[in-house]
Amino acid sequence: MIREISTKEIIRTVKDLCIDANYNLGNDVLLAFDKAIENERSEIGREVLKELKENARIAREEKSPICQDCGLAVVFIEIGQDVHIIDGDLTEAINEGVRQGYKDGYLRKSACNPFTRKNTGDNTPAIIHTEIVPGSKITITFAPKGGGAENMSRVTMLTPAAGLEGIEEFVINRIMESGSNPCPPTIIGIGIGGTFERSAILAKRAILREIGDRNPDESMAKIEEDLLAKINKLGIGPMGYGGSTTSLDVFIETEPCHIASLPLAVNIQCHAARHKEAVI
């Protein structure tokens, strides 16, 4: 059975997700703040974490953006193969949702021409990742991505011989070199495998996971835990002022890659880890 879904519903959904994601920090992050406040060794670090918790409360209650950087509009859309989209262009519908959400939600528009730096004025175009899946539903995940942490992210093509050791070394160096810039405590998304571009998308998908959610593959889950422990020994701490809470979690996503390659992407997410999902 083909199910018809109107672009009008998509526009409405995307608009609501833009506003919800920017005003309301996820409970997983709030719980991670609480845990970090208990465990953080640095007094200044604990003060910062308390400010972040208080900031999230104010944003939620006053319906204001958690962070002034309301990000580029990253949209993951999974379209059931039995869905027929009616009433116009899907891409334009997503962009219209972003346009309305950023205007009506008083969100900052941060999209600009890479050379002239002229702002597009409405935070479009959205960065859209589309996947066709079985079924007759559409799942939209909206993840506004701030510039500070995104700027610290990297893709590299390691040699297969580099192995796990090479992967860990690259990740730890990246975190160390990023220091205070990406607004720690951060969440680290790691994409391993695929191709050059695929590894980056895997890393981006990884940061959408809930804090505490482990990779179903036990060996990957262990690497996630080990890396998190190593990162939190670096001493960078909340906002880089020194401390034991540098990252809240590490998520790894993997896919098979070419026999000659070991693609690795590290996508850093600031503590304002905003993402909301809706199913139509």
Partner: peptide, 29 residues
Amino acid sequence: KGNRSQEVIESMKKYKAVYFGATGGAGAL
């Protein structure tokens, strides 16, 4: 927020200036 270059740090020493950090991501507060 975030690290400054050595040039900026030297200028702060030379001309008596200071770099303050505000809590990144605490925009509402």
